[in-house]
């Protein structure tokens, strides 16, 4: 027997939510393909296929129905976010391992949809960067800066047949965050570093535009009320304030705010990764604390840590704190006394 309400909001389902998130990713993906070549299509396709395969297998083993859980779309969002976080043109098994960590370990080991403590895509990313750091730092150089930009066919060839036919040096380079870090350590003057063509005008050539497209997608999600403003604003503010402070203190070592906001996974993290409702804090104040913490940690890891980008680790650490944050940020309930009175 079901009680009231008998009316339900129309066209409202987990599937709808997930597909809207994926739609909001599309501008960023197109920009990515435009600036870094068609490799992204290969990694998106691979991650999607692997993710559906792993999810279906686990659902079968757990004796759960396939249709509702596969069609909820959550595994696709995880797959896409992981694909967008990984370098393209890496060997196929790298994506497979990442998906296994994301879907099997981070999601299904914890009980599946809605039960996971950690952001699945970020768990996959973290597992890979710890296990295979070399592959994880070989990113395709922006189109126009590389000696050679692989075509779609060549991309498939690279991913499946390995990198024998074309030398990776021909099309890959370190990311701007990585380059900044190593060159600052070597004592290169900041002006010289930023003068290199790969740094573009803000956050790395091509990347800055991709980041803006993620921002656009994020604003679309905000306007359609898929997410609230709290997480992205607090994340970007946490990142900007911390990075800005460090830059003011030591401009020779720490890059500026704009560079931090537009490079690496900052925008993707602020709007698409930290906002994952399952693993994020849920109260308004909690979201501010959680995302602010993630943004702060991102800047700290970028500035002092051993890894070039800090979004994944920052989000995972913030995920750990979520139950605590939620417990202490419960909003005042209607009719309860206002605090301090």
């Amino acid at each position: 027997m079901n009680g009231s309400p008998f009316a339900l909001l129309a066209n409202n389902s987990v599937t709808a939510v997930m597909f809207k998130v994926m739609a909001a990713l599309i501008p960023g993906i197109i920009a990515h393909a435009w600036f870094f070549g068609p490799g992204i299509w290969v990694s998106l396709l691979l991650c999607t296929v692997f993710a559906i395969g792993v999810e279906a297998l686990i659902l079968l083993m757990r004796g759960l129905p396939l249709k509702p859980f596969l069609s909820d779309g959550s595994v696709l969002v995880t797959a896409w976010l992981l694909a967008l976080s990984l370098p393209t043109l890496a060997p196929w098994w790298l994506y497979a391992v990442g998906i296994i960590f994301a879907v099997l370990v981070a999601k299904q080991f914890y009980g599946g949809l809605g039960q996971n403590l950690f952001n699945p895509a970020m768990v996959g990313y973290a597992a890979l960067i710890i296990s295979f750091p070399v592959y994880m730092t070989q990113w395709p150089a922006p189109v126009g800066l590389a000696d050679h930009s692989p075509t779609l066919l060549e991309a498939f060839d690279l991913v499946f047949a390995g990198q024998g036919s074309i030398s990776p040096d021909a099309f890959t380079s370190a990311t701007v965050l990585d380059t900044w870090k190593t060159q600052v350590k070597l004592g290169k003057p900041v002006e010289d570093i930023l003068a290199q063509p790969m740094f573009g005008w803000g956050g790395g050539k091509g990347q800055e535009f991709v980041a803006l497209m993620y921002l656009l997608g994020g604003l679309l999600m905000l306007s359609s009320r898929l997410i609230t403003w709290h997480v992205p604003v607090a994340f970007l503010a946490g990142l900007a304030i911390t990075a800005g402070g460090l830059h003011l203190l030591e401009p020779a070592r720490h890059a500026g705010v704009l560079f931090h906001l537009l490079s690496g996974g900052a925008m993707l993290g602020a709007f698409f990764i930290a906002t994952d409702p399952v693993t994020a804090a849920s109260t308004p104040l909690g979201k501010l604390i959680y995302a602010g913490l993630a943004g702060f940690l991102t800047a700290i890891i970028r500035g002092f840590g051993g890894y070039p980008d800090g979004v994944a680790f920052a989000v995972l650490i913030a995920n750990v704190c979520v139950p605590f944050i939620d417990a202490y940020t419960q909003p005042r309930v209607f009719g309860h006394r206002k605090a301090g009175k």
């Binding site: 389902s13 949809l113 809605g114 849920s282």
Partner: peptide, 21 residues
């Protein structure tokens, strides 16, 4: 429709007139 697990999206908390979770 078929009930799926809670994804903690918080839509219910935003809709709650009593400001509950």
């Amino acid at each position: 429709p078929t009930t799926l697990p809670c994804i903690r999206c918080g839509a219910c908390a935003r809709a709650c007139p009593a400001d509950l979770q």
